[in-house]
Every structure is written in structure tokens, then in C-alpha cells.
Amino acid sequence: MQRVNMIMAESPGLITICLLGYLLSAECTVFLDHENANKILNRPKRYNSGKLEEFVQGNLERECMEEKCSFEEAREVFENTERTTEFWKQYVDGDQCESNPCLNGGSCKDDINSYECWCPFGFEGKNCELDVTCNIKNGRCEQFCKNSADNKVVCSCTEGYRLAENQKSCEPAVPFPCGRVSVSQTSKLTRAETVFPDVDYVNSTEAETILDNITQSTQSFNDFTRVVGGEDAKPGQFPWQVVLNGKVDAFCGGSIVNEKWIVTAAHCVETGVKITVVAGEHNIEETEHTEQKRNVIRIIPHHNYNAAINKYNHDIALLELDEPLVLNSYVTPICIADKEYTNIFLKFGSGYVSGWGRVFHKGRSALVLQYLRVPLVDRATCLRSTKFTIYNNMFCAGFHEGGRDSCQGDSGGPHVTEVEGTSFLTGIISWGEECAMKGKYGIYTKVSRYVNWIKEKTKLT
């Protein structure tokens, strides 16, 4: 034993070699072989497995989906700052455009905790909710729209109204504003409101030439003092309507412009014939205590009207009353817009006519005020429907199939267009061939041609 100890002390290297040989010859039971080890760690190889990531292109799944990435790591994937920024906006807080917040056709661009709407022409605001041009839906104005110097929408209202708090709607500024039905039992019968379409306001006024200088022999019209197929109006439903009495009662109609003036057809009036105007009328054979009678003290036909040349060209006249009318729910003026808007309103496509005229061709006159909704007829169809001249200051309205029309005794009465609950004068009943005849239409004086003249002559002093 002493000898062994001496050998170990003198030859430590020998001992180490012996131990190493023993270990190498022993069977290893701690580690699995290569094949079995792979069965336990069965993990798919990654895209760049075996390579240094710093030297390969980034992978979106590896960089940002398996674990949260930084902007720089995302930049490695896209290799483009702009594309990385677009991805980053949604990656950080989701897609803010998912709810489609942009209105009126706006395009949404996502941002971090926010979004941006790219608005089409005519709109602005956070969600493109603000109209900035009158060309689109009248700028959301209830009545009139004008573009300011910086191309912003400025709404306005006709006389007797003021802008509401929203700067879009119009509200009454006087007790009985024009064009409004205020009798409670008839307010439910107000005709369907007309909503502004998209309009090209630059070209809204037709490029028409008034044929002022045409000389033409007097034409022989049949029954051209021209509501057939209409309905009984309720008291106060058309408070701007008046009836004219002269040699015979209810020979023509008219509309209240203001307390002192009536507008009617020029062919209705004769110099030297006494005319009485009755406002607030409903049943011409009954006294309903809503009527107001006034005498006409002055007749002003349009300066281009000449019955000797043509009885229905420039067929418009103004009547001055001896005493002002007292405005109330049964006696209310009709609204008159400017030339541009009167023309736009007419193009809405349908209007209402009213009167006490004959209820059928050569038949009896109506006792109760009649009204009828009539569609506008395109000019080409209008011209083809008659052998008589249709001037540019006239328009056609009615039904091709016949059966409904204005008729004798309705002449001078109103053709009105309702705009968001307020009625505007767009025409004056003038003439036609018979009444409600198939293929024939009622012919009306186009008020847009005469609004400046009306307003100039009827100013209240």
C-alpha cells in the first residue's frame, strides 16, 4: 500500500490518463441519441435557420407576430419608411378606419389613436360632414345658397324668414311668412316636400332668348283662358290664391305678392273693366268669414305684352289694390325667389296649380277651390304637342294621358313649387288646347323671366 501511494504521488498524470480511459469505455446513459432527441424537440425550422439574422431580410411573422416588435424591426421587413409607417399605425392600436367614419364618399386613412378623412370636392370637416359648395344638395341650405369668396357655403332665406341657429334652416321672422300653410287642420295635408338634388348652379339658368321682337298675326285659340281631375282644397291650404270678379264672377285667378299687390295673367284683364279681388276665398257660393274683398285701382301688364300681336306672350300683369290686405292664416303671400332659384325650383319637376275653373272641358265651374299636382314636361315634348308657338318664356306641365289639367277660369292662378315646406311661385296658368285632352298640356308663363320686374313694381313704400 505504501508503494502504491508513492507511485500516485510521483505520477499524477498517469492516474488522470487511467481515469479518462475508464470513462470513455463506459456506456453513456444520461444523453439520448440524435434521433430520439429530435422526437422530443420537434420544432419547425425557421426561415433563416442556421444563418445569422443580421444578414437576412426581415420576416413579418418572425419579427412582429411571434413577439412584439419595434418600429426598427418592422422597418427591416418593409425596407421602406412609408410602408412601415402605414403598417405601424394599425399594428400599434388597430384600424381606426374600420367603422368607416368618413361621410359623403370620403376616404379614410388610419393613424395612431386617430384617423384622417380625405374629402371629395365640396366637403370638409373631420368626417367630411361639412358642405362647402352650393353645387351639392344646395349646400344643405333649406332655401338659398351662395358661395363666399373663400368658396364656403353661405345660406340665406327669402323675405319674412331668418336663418336658424344651425345656419342652414329657415324659420319665420314674421307672423305670416310667405308660402307657408298655417291653418292647423290643413298642415297635415301639406304636399310632399321637395329635397334639393345635386345641381350645376353655374349652368342652372337656361341660355334662352326671349323672342321679344317676333311679330306674329293673332292666333285663334280655343278655350285658351284655361282644375280638371283635381281635388277639393281645404280652407287655408292655398292662402296665396285669390279669385278675380268682373263682368262675371271667378273669371280668373291670381296670387298675393304682398298686402297691396296681386300677380295674374295679362290676358285676364281689360282696361276700363272694374275688377274686384277676393282673398281668403274657399267656396265661392258661401260666406265663410275668411274672405277679404278689395278693388283694383291700377293694372300693370308687362311692358312687352301686346294682345294685338299675341294674347299669351309675356302673359303676366300686376294688380294694385285700393287697401292693403290683412295677412292671416287664410290670406298669405306666395314666396318669389330670384331668377336663378325660381328656375331651379321649376326644374324640380312638379308643381301645384289651383283655381275655381271648370271641372271638365266646357263644363261647370268649381264651387270649392280645386288643386292638382302636375309634372313638368320637357321642352321637346311640349313643342311636338301643339302647332302653336311655345315661346321661351312659357313652359308645359300636365299629363300625356289627359284627364287632369287646369281649365277655363283658372287662368292667372299660381303654379307653385314647394321647397322644404315653403311654396314659391314658378308659373302662372296661361293657356292650353281644350282641357285635359290626351297628348295636350297646360301652358304656363315662366315666372323666372319676370321676377325682377315683379319685385321692382310691387315694392311697398
Rank of each mutant, 00 (worst) to 15 (best):
H303P: 09
E401C: 05
T332V: 14
Y201F: 14
M437A: 13
K168Y: 11
N258W: 00
R358L: 06
A337W: 00
F345Q: 02
A149Q: 11
A173K: 10
C157E: 01
Q167S: 12
K234P: 06
Y444D: 00
G427N: 01
P172L: 04
K446Y: 01
D378E: 11
R294C: 00
E401F: 11
E171G: 05
N310E: 06
R62G: 09
E98N: 12
V331R: 01
E124M: 04
L460R: 12
T461E: 12
T271W: 08
D338Y: 03
T85G: 10
A173N: 09
C28K: 03
A380F: 12
L23A: 05
I214V: 08
E67G: 09
F388Y: 13
E35I: 10
N113D: 14
T287I: 12
I336H: 00
S365F: 07
T461K: 08
V278I: 05
C134Q: 03
S169D: 08
S70I: 05
E401I: 11
A173I: 12
E259W: 03
N213V: 10
V278H: 05
S385W: 12
G351W: 00
G179Q: 01
V331Y: 00
L318S: 00
P175V: 07
V416A: 09
N203G: 11
H314R: 02
K126A: 11
H34E: 07
A250I: 07
I334A: 03
S182I: 08
L103I: 09
Y312W: 11
T287F: 07
S217P: 12
R62K: 09
C382D: 02
L23F: 13
F345A: 04
G272T: 12
L321F: 00
S25Q: 09
F399H: 12
Y441K: 02
V451R: 02
F31P: 15
K293M: 05
P120H: 05
C145Q: 03
Q237T: 08
E286M: 11
I15H: 04
F121D: 03
Q370Y: 03
G280L: 02
I297Q: 07
W240R: 01
S182L: 05
N304E: 11
L52A: 15
Y161L: 02
C141D: 00
N304A: 09
S220V: 12
G280T: 01
W240M: 01
A265P: 04
V263L: 11
P44R: 05
D110P: 14
F31L: 15
E10R: 04
D410T: 11
E323H: 09
R75S: 06
G122T: 03
A436R: 12
R191N: 12
N138R: 08
L319D: 00
E35C: 04
N258Y: 02
E456S: 09
G280F: 02
L372Q: 14
P414Y: 06
L376A: 04
V419E: 02
A173W: 06
K234G: 10
E53P: 10
D93R: 08
Q241A: 15
E54Y: 07
N295E: 13
F345T: 01
E288F: 05
H361C: 04
G179E: 01
N127T: 06
T16N: 04
Y444F: 14
E231F: 07
Q143H: 11
R379D: 08
H415D: 01
A9H: 13
E159V: 07
E270T: 12
G21T: 15
E208N: 10
K51I: 09
N151H: 12
S255Q: 03
V296F: 01
T29C: 10
G160I: 01
E420R: 15
E208F: 07
D198H: 12
P239I: 00
Y330W: 12
M6L: 15
I256Y: 00
Q216D: 12
K293R: 13
D198Q: 14
D405Q: 15
W88G: 15
M65C: 04
E340M: 08
E86R: 13
S430G: 11
Y352D: 03
D249C: 03
E66L: 05
T426D: 00
T218W: 12
G106E: 00
E72K: 11
S184T: 06
G94V: 12
V154D: 09
G122L: 03
L19V: 07
N166Y: 02
R3L: 12
L211A: 13
H267C: 03
E288N: 06
K51S: 13
S385C: 08
Q2F: 09
D198L: 07
V154E: 07
K260G: 03
E340R: 12
C119T: 01
N5I: 14
Y47D: 07
Y91S: 10
Y391D: 14
Y22Q: 09
A366C: 05
V77E: 15
L20E: 02
C157Y: 01
C134L: 03
E72G: 05
R83C: 04
S354V: 12
L19G: 02
F71W: 11
L376T: 08
G413Y: 15
N151C: 04
E82V: 09
E53G: 09
E159W: 05
P12I: 14
N213G: 10
F424M: 01
G106C: 01
N283W: 08
D232R: 15
S156E: 11
Y305S: 02
G13A: 12
R62W: 09
L321E: 00
N36Y: 04
F121L: 08
T264W: 01
H289G: 13
S329P: 14
R384C: 03
G246A: 09
A192M: 14
A308H: 09
E433K: 07
S204G: 11
R298T: 10
G58N: 15
L189A: 12
L211E: 06
P101C: 00
H289D: 08
I300A: 03
K440D: 15
C119M: 00
M65Y: 13
C141S: 00
E270I: 09
H303T: 09
I256F: 00
S350R: 14
Y330L: 05
T458S: 09
L14D: 02
V368G: 10
V377G: 02
